[in-house]
Design a protein around this nucleic acid. Structure first.
Length: 637
RNA sequence: GCCGCCGUAGCUCAACGGCAGAGCGCCGGAUUUGUAAUCCGGUGGUUAGGGGUUCAAGUCCCCUCGGCGGCUCCA
């Protein structure tokens, strides 16, 4: 007998070789379709061989979703093989949301193909065939792939060290797979194939281009509908559409892809964001600097950008027989400011901040509205400090990041601490002792603040470890924003020094950090987060006065002037449209407050206030309205 | 860059290889209206650009530019 511990802490004694399915049934978990055995996912059909902890998986668990989608990918592969017997399968993993399968049919799939495949999948799922794991000796697997001309599977096999290779079979369809899988195809209740695209075999652009099909599936139609609804919601929030509708920004072929024009209304929002950050930085010991957009190539040789970043830099220009390049980063300039005089240990830390406009060559296919551009303004800063100040400064940076991000209405976040891969020491610049100290310092900061974080080995930059903050927006999408990166390399390359207490020169370390990332990208994220309905403090037009008839225009203008005198961004709709039309226009343009004025208001010196979100609030004295909005602005609501 | 899709008025979209249109916007007029679309009229196009096939091209073919969805989350 062996002992199986269940999640509720209870222990069951079962015979060796009892399957997980039997244990699930006995535990009243007939809803489970897979299990975790000591944390590792297993098929329900797998037997338990020794004492272990077992928990059950359904679609509710992340590991369960993975299995569900993975099995759906197999079902799709089966459907494709039945419809297109000549298709060669490559890989078909689950992803964050759904799954894909890369397939070689010598052409792309059409929308009609997708419909056919989807219909086929439904038919196959309805047959509710068992999904079984089988293992084959590697030689047999190889012979089988060679016989069938399955060159991708064969290549995958080469990377598998084991002598026995696992396959999964359903209804005569066999696919090499690590598993685990659902016990039966009938558990796949709904399926939707979402899109197709080209994808390189093994992500290598020198290799074959395969056709990828993306899809998703759910145990209930409700969940699928919800998912599709969320896709539509994301489409509704598309910053490119809202940006045009609200006249915030534009991008023109004549100017160049990835180069953004900020229109007056977008510029207002940006100026408010920048002012808020400048004010915050001033309170936290930062000094603001400016630096040019160009520098001689010599600077980029010293910094190392010419060797490891050239492919992302705009080609240079020659002036007076000297080669100049547009800056892809601001760090060398801030370093030169640091270097412009001898620094004492007493001067450190030195924190230099700049909204620095950089130019980066992004490949044509990756540009995307404001989210991926070629000309961008980073809310950049570099902190130069002594090694013993790393922890203190990292702590201040994390604190600053949360202060700023919180002000923009983001509540949920995820922190990733990227450290070096201990097995790949040569990849990293700087002495191992420095790395150990720095990683420990960053980790201590996160732990000290009680912040949950993920520690990822091997994700550090070659020049130092980093802390990244990801945010979740109003509809649950994840965005990487803040990055706090420690760097040993540049101080070395530029031979930075400070005079220590001991009268000798020491090497400072530096942090690179951007909180919003770039103004362009952050603006895009904010537009999508708020769906265009900026909170009052950020709204390009905070209040609009609507005249009921032409004879109220003079009073409307008077009201707007009063609001402007009090610092509000206010406009007037004096058109001779009906009031309902003007209200609609204001709502569509996401104006937070509309002040309706007619005979009654003009006589009483008031305005009928309408809130974008709460509707008609009734007549209000202007002082009362101003008090209300000023409070709201101060609270950044 | 590569694969696929796409490019018609400021925006959203119609038009079988046979006269380039609608709604919104914008402009003008009428209306003077009380909380999400008043009516009438007008303006607006080298159909992204270039080349080709054809009696005839927005439509078919080729090139260029631009946009959209993707492009190592390992069987």
């Amino acid at each position: 007998m062996i002992r199986v511990q269940l999640p509720d802490g209870s222990v069951r004694e079962v015979a060796r070789g009892t399957t997980l399915a039997e244990i699930a049934r006995a535990a009243g978990r007939g809803d489970a379709f897979a299990a975790l055995v000591d944390g590792a996912p297993r098929d329900l059909a797998a037997p338990v061989e020794s004492d272990c902890r077992v928990s059950f998986l359904t679609f509710a668990e992340p590991e369960g979703k993975e299995i569900y989608w993975h099995s759906t990918a197999h079902l799709m592969a089966q459907a494709v093989k039945e419809l297109f017997p000549e298709a060669k399968l490559a890989i078909g993993p689950p992803i964050d949301e759904g799954f894909y399968y890369d397939i070689d049919i010598g052409r792309a799939f059409t929308p009609e193909d997708l419909e056919k495949i989807e219909a086929k999948m439904r038919g196959l799922a309805k047959r509710d065939e068992p999904i079984e794991r089988v293992t084959l000796p590697r030689a047999d697997a190889q012979a089988m792939f060679e016989g069938a001309g399955d060159k991708y599977k064969r290549e995958l096999l080469e990377d598998i060290p084991d002598e026995q290779v696992s396959f999964y079979r359903q209804d005569g369809f066999l696919d090499m797979c690590r598993g685990p899988h659902l016990p039966r195809t009938g558990l796949i209740k709904t399926v939707k194939l979402l899109s197709t695209s080209g994808a390189y075999w093994r992500g290598d652009e020198k290799r074959e281009m395969l056709s990828r099909i993306y899809g998703i599936s759910f145990p209930t139609k409700d969940e699928l509908d919800q998912y599709l609804h969320r896709l539509e919601e994301a489409k509704r929030r598309d910053h490119r559409r809202i940006g045009r509708e609200m006249d915030l920004f534009s991008i023109h072929e004549e100017i160049g892809p990835g180069l953004v024009l900020w229109h007056p209304k977008g510029a207002v929002v940006r100026q408010i964001m920048e002012a808020f950050i400048r004010e915050t930085l001033a309170q936290r010991g930062y000094e603001q600097v400016y630096s040019p957009h160009l520098a001689r190539s010599r600077l980029w040789e010293i910094s190392g950008h010419m060797s490891w970043y050239v492919e992302s830099m705009f080609a240079g220009m020659v002036v007076d027989e000297q080669n100049y390049l547009a800056k892809p980063m601001n760090c060398p300039f801030h370093i030169m400011i640091y270097k412009s005089q001898t620094r004492s240990y007493r001067d450190l830390p030195i924190r230099l901040a700049e909204f620095g406009t950089c130019y980066r060559y992004e490949r044509p296919g990756v540009l995307h509205g404001l989210l991926r551009v070629r000309g961008l303004t980073q809310d950049d800063a570099h902190v130069f400090c002594r090694p013993d100040q790393i922890e203190q400064e990292a702590s201040a940076l994390v604190d600053l990041a949360f202060h700023v991000l919180g002000a923009f209405g983001f509540k949920d976040s995820e922190i990733v601490l990227s450290v070096r891969d201990p097995k790949a020491a040569p990849k990293y610049a700087g002495r191992p002792e420095l790395w150990d100290a720095a990683e420990a310092a960053l980790e201590a900061v996160l732990r000290g603040r009680g912040l949950p974080y993920r520690r990822v080995e091997g994700e550090a930059n070659f020049y130092g470890p980093k802390i990244d903050i990801h945010l979740f927006d109003a509809i649950g999408r994840k965005w990487q924003l803040t990055t706090i990166q420690l760097d040993y390399t540049l101080p070395e390359r530029f031979d930075l020094a400070f005079m220590g207490e001991d009268g000798r020169e020491h090497r400072p370390v530096m942090f690179h950090r951007a909180i919003l990332g770039s103004m362009e990208r952050f603006m895009g994220i904010l537009i999508e987060h708020y769906a265009g309905a900026f909170p009052l403090w950020l709204a390009p037009e905070q209040a609009r006065v609507l005249s009921i008839t032409d004879r109220h225009v003079a009073y409307a203008k008077q009201v707007a002037e009063r609001l402007k005198a009090e610092g509000l961004r206010a406009g007037v709709d004096e058109s001779s449209e009906r009031i309902s039309y003007k209200v609609r226009r204001g709502q569509v343009e996401h104006v937070p407050y509309m002040l309706v004025v007619g005979d009654r208001e003009a006589a009483a010196g008031t305005a009928a206030v309408r809130s974008r979100s709460a509707g008609d609030l009734g007549p209000m004295a202007l002082d009362a309205f101003l008090a209300r909005v000023n409070e709201e602005i101060a609270a950044r609501q």
